[in-house]
Write a protein that binds this DNA or RNA. Structure first.
Lengths: 189, 189
DNA sequence: GTCTATACGCAGATAGAC
DNA sequence: GTCTATCTGCGTATAGAC
């Protein structure tokens, strides 16, 4: 595969990612993606054999992005508590997208987990990456493993809930308010 | 419309409700619903003109069910705090469904809010019914209106988050644990 | 009222020209 | 590699027999 094909492939993946997030996986057609990328439907199949192949590539791409940002936070933010604050800040920074389309990870997982016929329940791996990383931060803060895992799940729960309600009510101020509450909770531990 | 047609219509609505919840609205076809109800696709159109008509009926039906259960709680549970506990208990009672398909209200709203082309953002009305009712309970507990509304949104946030993570990780024990935490929070107010 | 037959478009997917 | 043309199936929706 040459670099041009590589580029187009990457463009297909990032475009599909965006469209799956904004319209849902099921609701997004090859035509939608091809049009957005600027290639013909036929050309499409040179890069991916099936729609499921694209989805798999999208999920792998998202997982890689998540790993990258978590590594970046590990390397640039010295204190574990500050890293967790950064995690919470993410939903505030991203609020404009969240009020429109919800969480880019949570909503995709919710949809895919209902389509039991396809084997993309590994979409949950994306959440798992965050879960394990957050757990690690709580361990660094002195909690035992079980407690840290529970705190991690609780934090995930709150951010997902904020995304669902933030989208449903299209309310950015609410996201900001709940994020602040969450940071207070973090400080109180 | 005679009583038999009424019965079939109700059966279509309840079946569509179930399938929209379990498979998603977009992923559910007329064929799916007709098969589950036990009628032909053609007969289907005697009762509903379009798929959107069915969705509208499903949402109205869900709203009516929500109003009914909230009224029942108002009438049978004397204390506001106990009524809120009952609300939290609902996700525990319903955990077997939640781990498979998520929240029957939240997941449907999440999906429909992404389909901007159709005008079913009123799906959020279903959440609004809970929001207003919960707000009222907090007012009865002595909070001012703004504070009560914030507490209501917070409680909604937690139950939605629990549903998202509970489904993603297929973890009923987690739902029970977080529900208990939520009840403790309620007592601490 | 309920059925069968069918229209029509768009979905995913393939073949083969260039 | 990218295109156009095309296949096949399923989607929503309609017509008309019974």
């Amino acid at each position: 595969m040459n670099s041009k094909a590589e580029t187009i492939r990457n463009k297909i993946v990032s475009t599909a990612d965006e469209l799956f997030y904004r319209q849902g996986f099921n609701h997004t057609s090859f035509t939608d993606i091809a049009k957005a990328v600027g290639i013909s439907r036929g050309n499409f199949y040179y890069h991916f054999k099936t729609k499921d192949d694209i989805l798999a590539a999208v999920i792998e791409n998202k997982k890689a992005s998540i790993k990258q940002i978590l590594t970046e936070w590990d390397e640039t933010i010295p204190q574990a508590k500050d890293r967790l604050t950064q995690y919470i800040n993410m939903i505030v920074d991203y609020q404009d997208h969240i009020v429109k389309y919800g969480c880019p990870i949570g909503t995709v997982c919710t949809e895919l987990n209902k389509l039991k016929n396809i084997n993309y329940n590994n979409a949950t791996d994306m959440i798992m990456l965050f879960k394990d990383w957050i757990t690690q931060q709580f361990i660094l803060l002195g909690h035992d493993k079980e407690k840290a895992e529970h705190l991690s799940m609780h934090l995930l729960t709150c951010t997902q809930g904020i995304s669902v309600i933030g989208q449903a009510f299209n309310d950015a101020a609410f996201i900001k308010r709940e994020a602040d509450t969450l940071k207070q909770w973090l400080e109180s531990l």
